[in-house]
Amino acid sequence: MTITAAMVKELRESTGAGMMDAKKALTETNGDMEAAVDWLRTKGLATAAKKAGRVAAEGLVGVAVEGGRGVAVEVNSETDFVAKNADFQNLVRSFTATGLKAADIEALKAADMGGKSVADTLTSAIATIGENLTLRRMASVEGDAVAAYVHNAAADGLGKIGVLVAMKGTDNGIGKQLAMHIAATSPLALSEAALDPEVVERERTVQTQKALEENANSAKPKPEAVIQNNIIPGRMQKFLKEVTLLNQPFVMNPDITVEQAAKEAGVEVTGFVRLAVGEGVEKKEEDFAAEVAKVLQG
């Protein structure tokens, strides 16, 4: 497979590795981006295990809470100009409010909104606005109390990142702090039990290979039993602490975990949602001038 400059650039941005290291990683893994990330981490050349993939889609995430239910809805547009448009913002806000009564994204698309389905309303908006629009994702949480937060807010309840936190107990203000924490740290799961087993095994494989290579190159190699019983479990424990919400140091007070902070506030976190605009979507890059020209052409 031909390794392009764009691929090397993408890998560099997602890992912090040097250009030649990124190119070698892609060559060694036949262009497989995720495998290349793991290869770099095994060699100790990647500074972070960020998800490979460029995020380029525009749009907004809307959040709404009613009673003990919260919903987050992502609507994508082709350009950021549209995301700043009042008509588009009202559309996202209406879809989000309708989502409070919908079970999932398909139910939302079929839901009635002023005599037309949400899907038909979106189609009409595409014709009016002149850009392709996509109702991409919807997620919800339920609890005794639900708190919401939007980061990079474009308007009330609309932003580039939308977060919902479900709690057992009465929210005394901790909910918004927890939601802001989630926006900042982007945890993979609520707890270790909720973490995807494949993610855990992938990390274990990386840490095992990394530890073995480090040991092989050490002037004073450690017995394999020490690596398997001490070093790898220790690194996995650190990983789980970093990616599971309840185990993360609370950003408002890093001396305690999120779980401890919630407990001290008299609540228990039972679930969360974090949607970021364009997450995992790859779109052809255009320069600013081309984007303006595209909008003016209609």
Rank of each mutant, 00 (worst) to 15 (best):
R235Y: 09
G44K: 01
Q207F: 13
R235L: 14
E201K: 14
A110Y: 07
N247I: 04
H151R: 06
G53V: 03
K238T: 05
A147N: 12
I174V: 15
F81A: 11
Q248K: 10
L188T: 00
T257I: 13
N172K: 15
A193N: 09
R274I: 11
V165D: 12
T27C: 00
M180V: 00
K283N: 02
G234F: 08
G159L: 10
I126A: 09
D144A: 13
I105V: 09
L100N: 05
A193Q: 08
A219N: 13
D38E: 13
E201G: 04
T15D: 07
R274P: 08
T2V: 09
T79N: 10
A107R: 01
V269N: 07
F81M: 05
E242S: 12
E203R: 11
G31A: 09
V92Y: 02
E10I: 00
A97R: 13
A97K: 15
T42H: 06
L296G: 00
R41I: 10
L275T: 01
L40C: 04
L11E: 05
G162W: 09
E192Y: 01
V273I: 14
E264N: 14
A145E: 09
I3H: 08
F88T: 07
P197W: 08
F88K: 04
A290S: 13
A289R: 01
N247E: 15
E192H: 06
T42S: 12
V150H: 04
S77G: 11
E66H: 11
P233A: 08
L190S: 04
G59Q: 08
T270S: 14
L91Y: 07
D104M: 11
A289D: 14
T47L: 15
N217K: 12
T29W: 05
M180W: 04
V277W: 02
N76A: 11
A225Y: 05
E279V: 07
K294C: 03
A219I: 03
V65L: 09
R69C: 11
M33S: 07
G278E: 07
E28M: 07
Q260L: 10
E10R: 12
P233G: 08
V206I: 14
S117Y: 06
G67A: 12
T270N: 08
H151I: 10
S191M: 01
A119E: 12
A103D: 14
V65W: 05
L158C: 02
G16A: 04
G162F: 06
E213Y: 02
V82N: 10
L212G: 03
K220V: 10
F288K: 06
A147Y: 08
T27M: 10
A119T: 01
R202H: 07
Q237R: 11
